[in-house]
């Protein structure tokens, strides 16, 4: 894949970082404003997909990125499960227990373990979407070859 024209490339260069940062913002404020892990994760994946689409990438590099993203997907799901089981081990045996202190409503650091779940879900969604995208694009590459 060659990538697109210089116009798209330059815009992608300028924008991708900010899209990524906005994704982080949506994840970090998931317990305060609409949004959260899924929406933010979609933005994180969008930033990567934007750069890959604009710049193009050769087949081998895409393969490598796919293994990495599927690995990070598995790890983040395991982390979510571990958080859930940690709630089960702490005190009363409750699966998905919110065991951290709650804080005051409206602050950034509040709502106990929910921001942690949001962060891991964000990583998971980002890497899952990236994996799906790469899986589809790799087959397209194979067809063209």
């Amino acid at each position: 894949m060659k990538g697109m024209s210089i116009i798209v490339k330059k815009v992608a260069q300028l924008i991708a970082g900010f899209v990524f940062l906005y994704g982080i913002y949506i994840i970090a404020h998931g317990h305060l404003t609409p949004g959260g892990g899924f929406a933010g994760g979609a933005l994180l994946a969008g930033a990567y997909i934007l750069s890959i689409l604009a710049y193009g990438s050769d087949y081998l590099k895409l393969k490598e990125e796919q293994t990495e993203s599927s690995l990070s997907e598995s790890i983040s799901i395991l982390l979510i499960l571990m958080l859930a089981v940690a709630g089960m081990l702490m005190g009363i045996k409750v699966f998905f227990n919110n065991f951290l202190p709650k804080g005051t409503i409206g602050e950034l650091i509040s709502a106990g373990a929910i921001p942690l779940y949001n962060i891991f879900i964000g990583i998971e969604v980002a890497s899952a979407l990236l994996t799906i995208f790469l899986a589809l694009i790799i087959y397209k590459e194979e067809i063209e070859e």
């Binding site: 260069q13 300028l14 991708a16 970082g17 990524f20 940062l21 930033a47 750069s51 710049y55």
Partner: peptide, 12 residues
């Protein structure tokens, strides 16, 4: 910081 580490090399 995360954004810089990941996207710094693509910036203008």
């Amino acid at each position: 910081g995360i954004t810089t580490v990941l996207f710094g090399k693509y910036f203008i």
